[in-house]
Design a protein around this nucleic acid. Structure first.
Length: 290
DNA sequence: GGTGCACCTGTTAC
DNA sequence: AGTAACAGGTGCA
């Protein structure tokens, strides 16, 4: 039996911008403002309403889901305070002004890791499609209010699949990485949960020891799932807009851009990156080539 | 430490 | 219609 509840959320809050800003790839909009996805292993529906946020879940799970949502949506983050800290930068202020209420999410580290390994030289629609294919094929199916969704397969489950089959699902050259990372997780070579308590540098070094995980993917996993908000993923879009806005289009390495951004924005770097990325991507301001 | 290239594959641009 | 360029990068010479 599906139950519906409401939850208070801090202002500002924008569910659509948050779920559609390229942090998560398996949430989908269904009808009349409702989104369906999973939080933890639970199927959940979310809809923003005037008074806050409504959620639907399986009866009996209401309280657990409420707590999980608080975690997932990072409701403890005070966006107004963050805006005060970084809003003195006109470019950042502009992006904030266009998407007030866009929040970082606190994702399940394993799914987040696989997602961003699969993101390299790809695009959001394709990432969504291939992750959806993987979960349909190997994830446990669940039903909520007539919608079928799938749990993200555990490392042990993906470890049994094999590279060839992953390629068949559309992962391309990324299949080799996932095929190597899954057994490493399954056997505990890297303990993602423990990385939450490690320093940014230590956690990043461990992530980058995995095949298919470089600076950029590591920072995505750190910001989106491991509470390291000082991470600052430098992708094509960010590289381009930073060079253009702050370096007069000059030559500067990704490593230098990263240090510069972290020195400038500190713990808020992850938030700034997400606003700049989302804004730049939707603005479609020219196609970056390097 | 920097540069150049290959890597899958679906879209989009000429 | 055919082809090239491009996409939330990474690994390796």
């Amino acid at each position: 039996m599906t139950r519906q509840r409401d939850i208070d959320v801090p202002e500002p809050f924008d569910l659509a911008a948050t779920l559609e800003s390229g942090q998560v790839f398996r949430w989908r909009r269904v009808d009349s403002g409702w989104y369906v996805g999973t939080v933890g292993q639970q199927p959940v529906m979310l809809r923003q309403v005037e008074e806050g946020l409504s959620y639907r879940c399986e009866g009996g799970a209401e309280e657990a889901v409420r707590r999980a949502l608080h975690d997932f949506l990072r409701l403890e983050d005070d966006l107004r305070a963050i805006y005060r800290e970084v809003g003195d930068d006109p470019r950042v202020a502009e992006a904030i002004g266009r998407y007030p209420g866009l929040r970082l999410l606190r994702q399940e580290p394993w799914e987040c890791l696989v997602s961003f390994v699969c993101s390299s030289v790809s695009n959001i629609p394709r990432i969504s499609r291939t992750l959806e294919a993987v979960t349909r094929r190997y994830g446990k199916p669940m039903d909520l209010a007539g919608h079928t969704l799938y749990a993200f397969p555990a490392p042990e489950e993906l470890a049994r699949v094999g590279e060839g089959e992953l390629r068949g699902l559309g992962l391309g050259f990324r299949a080799r990485y996932v095929d190597a990372i899954a057994p490493a997780q399954a056997t505990g070579i890297v303990d993602l949960a423990a990385l939450r308590r490690a320093s940014y540098e230590e956690a990043k070094a461990q992530l980058m020891s995995l095949p298919g995980v470089g600076e950029k993917v590591a920072d995505c996993v750190l910001v989106f799932s491991l509470d390291k908000l000082e991470g600052f993923p430098v992708d094509r879009w960010i590289r381009r807009c930073l060079k253009e806005w702050y370096f007069q289009g000059g030559t500067i390495s990704d490593a230098a851009l990263l240090s510069w951004a972290q020195a400038r924005w500190g713990w808020y770097a992850g938030y700034v990156q997400q606003y700049l990325f989302h804004d730049r991507r939707l603005a479609g301001a020219g196609t970056p080539k390097t």
